[in-house]
């Protein structure tokens, strides 16, 4: 008997989004990063096109995170308070393909740094590395809006990924992105309909579809992963099925979310059944990243060098298969 592979073809295609701009394109990056373009489910090379592989960004901070786990501090203690140096280390030593600059310190209750300081910092990071940049804000909309406007202006033409806009503040962020040529992250709280609605709102104000990345909100392993996983599978299925308002590439935050949970922080002495603490921090991030890759994640902002290494290795392994065909 000859087995015939049951193939499923899709009407839709995930929109291709490019982050960063080279000198020719009006920026200063040595190369750009493109995600999206798929016509079948993740890694289903036998029934669709997959022109781009998922990429990994690493994150630097304008303020040392209050509860940064020891297992990460071991890697970064010398640069954690020097974001430009930390960015360079992430790219040169740990293989980061993009850098996210998290501007938590501009939050009025977490340092209240000014928009000008933030813009200056982002410029330093842009000088220190040549990969595309993600600018990550926070939930204090009033301040984040002010900061993002300033940062967008200061980095005009670089096509940064501005992370993020929500239903409550998308107009301000989107206007800044359009004015200074940046790409946007549309974040919605683990809900297919809300994700779709925000994409409609953005495109209705003539925001270009090829400049939108969706953040479905990452619930990390053990803390709501199952919701994120299923919402992402539904978004990807609907997008491939032809719903253009759900056909955007997706971003996740396994690093930030995994670094905040108890599992990354408590010692083996206190929780003997949870095993080695050093391993656990990386494991939590790997398992979150890999399961969400299978659900359709394409841009992963990660923290732990060991996790980055193994997730990148597995993405390469999988895509070697495609190239080998």
């Amino acid at each position: 008997m000859n087995f015939e592979i049951p193939k499923e073809t899709n009407a839709g295609k995930i929109i291709e989004v490019t982050i960063g701009a080279t000198a020719k394109q009006g920026g200063t990056r040595s190369q750009t990063t493109t995600i999206g373009g798929h016509t079948s489910l993740p890694f289903h090379f036998f029934e669709g096109e997959h022109p781009h592989r998922p990429v990994i960004a690493m994150e630097v901070f304008d303020k040392v995170p209050a509860k940064y786990p020891d297992s990460l501090m071991d890697y970064y203690h010398d640069v954690i308070d020097k974001p430009a140096d930390m960015a360079k280390k992430c790219v040169d030593e740990h293989g980061a393909e993009l850098i996210s600059v998290r501007l938590e310190g501009t939050h009025p209750e977490k340092g209240d740094k000014s928009a000008e300081e933030a813009a200056e910092l982002v410029k330093q990071v842009l000088k220190s590395v040549s990969v595309p940049i993600i600018i990550t804000g926070h939930s204090h909309f009033e301040k984040t809006n002010e900061v993002m406007k300033k940062v967008c202006e200061a980095t005009e033409g670089e096509n940064c990924l501005i992370n993020y806009a929500e239903t409550d503040n998308y107009k301000t962020i989107a206007a800044a992105c359009i004015a200074y040529n940046h790409t946007i992250v549309a974040q919605s709280p683990i809900d297919v309909n809300l994700a779709k609605q925000l994409n409609i709102l953005l495109t209705d104000m003539n925001f270009p579809a090829e400049k939108i990345v969706v953040d479905p909100l990452t619930g990390t392993l053990g803390y709501g992963l199952e919701y994120t996983y299923s919402i992402m599978e539904r978004i990807r299925n609907d997008g491939l099925g032809g719903d253009k308002m759900l056909a955007f590439p997706m971003l996740i935050n396994p690093g930030y979310e995994s670094s905040r949970v108890k599992e990354a922080r408590v010692s083996r002495e206190d929780y003997p059944e949870w095993g080695d603490q050093e391993l656990r921090g990386a494991y939590w991030e790997i398992s979150t990243a890999v399961s969400l890759l299978a659900a359709g994640a394409e841009l992963l902002i990660m923290y732990h060098p060991k996790a980055v290494e193994v997730v990148k290795k597995n993405i390469s392994e999988i895509f070697d298969l495609k190239n080998g065909d």
Partner: peptide, 11 residues
């Protein structure tokens, strides 16, 4: 490896 098993159990 307990840390690995605990991670997989949770997943």
């Amino acid at each position: 490896n307990k840390a690995m098993l605990y991670t997989l159990f949770t997943l």
